[in-house]
Amino acid sequence: MEKLLKLLDNNARLTNAQLAVMLGCTENEVSDRIAQWERDGVIRGYKAIIDWERTDRAYVTALIELRVTPKPDLGFEGIAERVMRFEEVESVYLMSGGYDLAVIVSGRTFKDIAMFVAKRLSTLDSVLSTATHFVLRRYKDRGVIFLGEEKDERGVL
């Protein structure tokens, strides 16, 4: 059934009927399995992968490196929880290496994000320092290529 997860990972819009055909099982088996995964938290949600550049929406993202002081009991979780509550924050990861939390933030303009970091993030108690890296161009996101079309260079035979 790992195949089913892979198929959904690739395209969550395939219908249960299509998935059942592809895997050689029944539609009920597919829907039961998916329901189970949703209950168990294996599947956390379904979203479209959108290239906002091709729309009218002003959309900027940045990766913020946060260095923080872990709390005695909660470690990094306390601050991570605090950070993820901001609706500007798309993702929060605990990192190994030179800093502690990687935070992906989105906004309408560079200034929005800069202000968010200055006023909301860097003012949190445990935050020692921030470094903001703006995303200039998205070539590939979550496995999907954004830069033009992939060309099939195969010949014939």
């Binding site: 195949k3 198929l7 299509q18 055909v21 592809m22 895997l23 050689g24």
Partner: peptide
């Protein structure tokens, strides 16, 4: 082969 098999089932159907 697992990937081909998925496509095969879909296309035949």
């Amino acid at each position: 082969r697992a990937e081909y098999d998925i496509r095969r089932r879909y296309i035949v159907d």
